Amino acid sequence: MSIQHFRVALIPFFAAFCLPVFAHPETLVKVKDAEDQLGARVGYIELDLNSGKILESFRPEERFPMMSTFKVLLCGAVLSRVDAGQEQLGRRIHYSQNDLVEYSPVTEKHLTDGMTVRELCSAAITMSDNTAANLLLTTIGGPKELTAFLHNMGDHVTRLDRWEPELNEAIPNDERDTTMPAAMATTLRKLLTGELLTLASRQQLIDWMEADKVAGPLLRSALPAGWFIADKSGAGERGSRGIIAALGPDGKPSRIVVIYTTGSQATMDERNRQIAEIGASLIKHW
């Protein structure tokens, strides 16, 4: 067993022997301040990774656009098919120029040779490549099948209805392509620590998230040296922004954090800054 596999296998073990965790309302004060600064709703939840206990939450059962955070769930569904012998990570998928959609920095470079399922998941999570996500959605049967996968996990809230990039439209009061912070946090925890996926697939999923290259201005910008984070960000229309993450000190994750916002007129930089400040408060009061 590799060191990384050992780390993920012992996530519940280490967490069980940690000192009790206590909620700190100071972080919620910052979440509410972010709402004021952005002029928009902000949803927040913080779960203990081992027990699933909610440590703090704000608007945990209000719907927010998922945006690209759905790509972690998508690759979880792909990995479940791999575990069941219905898919192979090494299978190569070929596609054409007509398949390319807006923001496809990886797939646009491989029109000639195609990409493997493993490479597509890596591109979808680490670079948020939209064509990679659409190609992977095709392998599982489309958005409705991802929703069905989530329902089978016990998540009857999260739903995907459309493809990239239309799913980022974020129309107010439109339930399409949305989740709730509580539902997303619980589902992410199941994917990373539950028995739904094999140990190898859980490790692969967290490795992809740990290698995320496009979430630097968010929670990662607030992390002290030595902290662990595996995350996936999302951005959408109407001032929408979000991030889902597993993080913790001492090089291992111990909490799940989900943050979503929508309806702001603020710039992307300002949305990023507010999420980073929430992260800084979380870490300060850990």
Results as ranks from 00 to 15, higher is better:
24 H>E: 10
24 H>C: 04
27 T>P: 08
28 L>D: 05
29 V>E: 01
29 V>N: 06
30 K>Q: 14
31 V>W: 06
32 K>L: 02
32 K>V: 06
32 K>I: 01
33 D>W: 08
34 A>R: 05
34 A>T: 05
34 A>S: 05
35 E>G: 03
36 D>L: 04
36 D>M: 10
37 Q>S: 11
39 G>W: 10
39 G>H: 12
41 R>W: 14
41 R>V: 03
42 V>T: 00
42 V>H: 00
44 Y>F: 13
44 Y>V: 12
44 Y>T: 11
45 I>Q: 09
45 I>F: 12
46 E>Q: 09
47 L>S: 03
49 L>N: 13
50 N>G: 09
51 S>F: 11
52 G>A: 01
52 G>I: 01
53 K>H: 01
53 K>L: 05
54 I>W: 02
55 L>Y: 05
55 L>V: 06
56 E>Y: 05
57 S>V: 10
57 S>N: 08
58 F>R: 11
59 R>K: 04
60 P>Y: 01
61 E>H: 03
61 E>D: 05
61 E>G: 06
61 E>L: 07
61 E>C: 09
62 E>R: 13
63 R>P: 06
63 R>H: 05
65 P>C: 09
66 M>N: 03
67 M>F: 15
69 T>D: 01
70 F>R: 04
70 F>L: 01
70 F>I: 05
71 K>A: 03
71 K>C: 04
71 K>L: 05
71 K>P: 03
72 V>D: 08
72 V>C: 04
73 L>E: 07
73 L>R: 08
73 L>W: 02
73 L>P: 11
75 C>R: 07
77 A>N: 12
78 V>N: 15
79 L>N: 07
79 L>A: 05
80 S>V: 10
81 R>S: 00
82 V>E: 07
84 A>L: 13
84 A>Q: 13
85 G>F: 09
86 Q>K: 12
87 E>N: 14
87 E>D: 12
88 Q>H: 07
90 G>T: 10
90 G>P: 10
91 R>M: 11
92 R>W: 12
92 R>T: 03
93 I>Y: 06
93 I>N: 15
95 Y>W: 07
95 Y>K: 00
95 Y>N: 01
96 S>T: 09
97 Q>M: 03
97 Q>K: 00
98 N>P: 03
98 N>R: 07
98 N>V: 02
98 N>F: 05
99 D>C: 15
102 E>L: 04
103 Y>G: 02
103 Y>N: 00
105 P>A: 05
106 V>R: 15
107 T>I: 07
107 T>P: 01
108 E>N: 02
108 E>S: 11
109 K>G: 12
110 H>A: 10
110 H>F: 11
113 D>S: 10
114 G>M: 15
115 M>P: 01
115 M>Q: 00
115 M>V: 00
116 T>R: 11
116 T>W: 10
118 R>T: 15
118 R>Y: 15
119 E>P: 14
122 S>T: 09
123 A>L: 00
124 A>Q: 01
125 I>H: 15
125 I>G: 13
125 I>V: 15
127 M>F: 03
129 D>F: 15
130 N>I: 01
130 N>D: 01
131 T>H: 14
131 T>M: 13
131 T>G: 13
131 T>P: 11
132 A>E: 15
132 A>S: 14
133 A>H: 03
133 A>K: 14
134 N>G: 06
135 L>H: 03
136 L>G: 03
137 L>M: 10
137 L>V: 08
138 T>W: 10
139 T>P: 03
140 I>C: 13
141 G>E: 10
141 G>M: 06
142 G>E: 14
142 G>Q: 09
142 G>D: 01
142 G>H: 04
143 P>A: 08
144 K>E: 13
146 L>S: 02
146 L>K: 08
147 T>Y: 12
148 A>P: 11
149 F>T: 08
150 L>N: 10
150 L>I: 02
150 L>Y: 06
151 H>D: 10
151 H>V: 04
152 N>H: 13
153 M>Q: 11
153 M>L: 13
154 G>W: 05
157 V>W: 08
158 T>H: 09
158 T>F: 15
158 T>I: 15
158 T>E: 00
159 R>L: 08
160 L>R: 11
163 W>R: 08
165 P>L: 05
165 P>T: 09
165 P>F: 10
165 P>K: 01
166 E>I: 14
166 E>C: 02
167 L>D: 05
170 A>E: 02
170 A>T: 10
170 A>Q: 15
171 I>K: 00
171 I>W: 12
172 P>D: 09
173 N>V: 06
173 N>Q: 03
173 N>G: 07
176 R>C: 14
176 R>I: 05
178 T>D: 09
179 T>I: 15
179 T>R: 12
179 T>E: 13
179 T>M: 11
182 A>M: 15
184 M>Y: 03
184 M>N: 07
184 M>G: 08
185 A>S: 05
185 A>W: 07
185 A>H: 07
187 T>H: 03
187 T>Q: 00
188 L>Y: 00
189 R>K: 04
192 L>T: 06
192 L>N: 03
192 L>M: 13
193 T>C: 10
193 T>M: 01
194 G>V: 08
194 G>P: 06
198 T>V: 08
198 T>D: 04
198 T>R: 08
199 L>K: 00
199 L>P: 01
200 A>E: 04
201 S>C: 15
201 S>L: 13
202 R>F: 09
204 Q>M: 12
204 Q>P: 10
205 L>W: 09
208 W>Q: 04
211 A>M: 15
213 K>V: 02
214 V>P: 01
215 A>D: 15
215 A>Y: 13
215 A>W: 00
215 A>L: 03
217 P>F: 01
217 P>H: 13
217 P>E: 10
218 L>C: 00
218 L>G: 03
220 R>G: 13
220 R>V: 06
221 S>Q: 11
221 S>N: 03
222 A>F: 15
222 A>I: 06
222 A>G: 13
222 A>D: 15
225 A>H: 08
225 A>L: 00
225 A>Q: 03
226 G>V: 08
227 W>V: 00
227 W>T: 03
231 D>E: 06
232 K>S: 15
232 K>I: 15
233 S>P: 05
235 A>E: 14
235 A>M: 09
235 A>N: 10
235 A>H: 11
236 G>E: 07
236 G>K: 00
237 E>I: 13
237 E>P: 14
239 G>H: 09
239 G>I: 03
239 G>C: 02
240 S>A: 09
240 S>T: 05
241 R>P: 12
241 R>H: 13
244 I>A: 09
245 A>H: 02
245 A>L: 10
246 A>H: 08
246 A>Y: 12
246 A>N: 08
247 L>V: 05
248 G>Y: 07
249 P>M: 10
252 K>H: 07
254 S>N: 01
255 R>T: 06
255 R>Y: 08
255 R>K: 09
256 I>S: 12
256 I>M: 12
257 V>K: 03
258 V>L: 08
259 I>C: 08
260 Y>M: 03
260 Y>P: 01
260 Y>I: 04
261 T>W: 08
262 T>I: 10
263 G>K: 00
263 G>N: 03
263 G>H: 09
263 G>L: 03
264 S>R: 05
265 Q>Y: 15
266 A>H: 15
266 A>C: 15
270 E>T: 15
271 R>I: 12
274 Q>T: 08
274 Q>R: 05
274 Q>I: 01
275 I>N: 09
276 A>R: 04
276 A>N: 13
277 E>I: 15
277 E>R: 14
278 I>P: 14
278 I>M: 15
278 I>V: 14
280 A>F: 01
281 S>W: 15
282 L>G: 12
284 K>C: 05
286 W>Q: 05
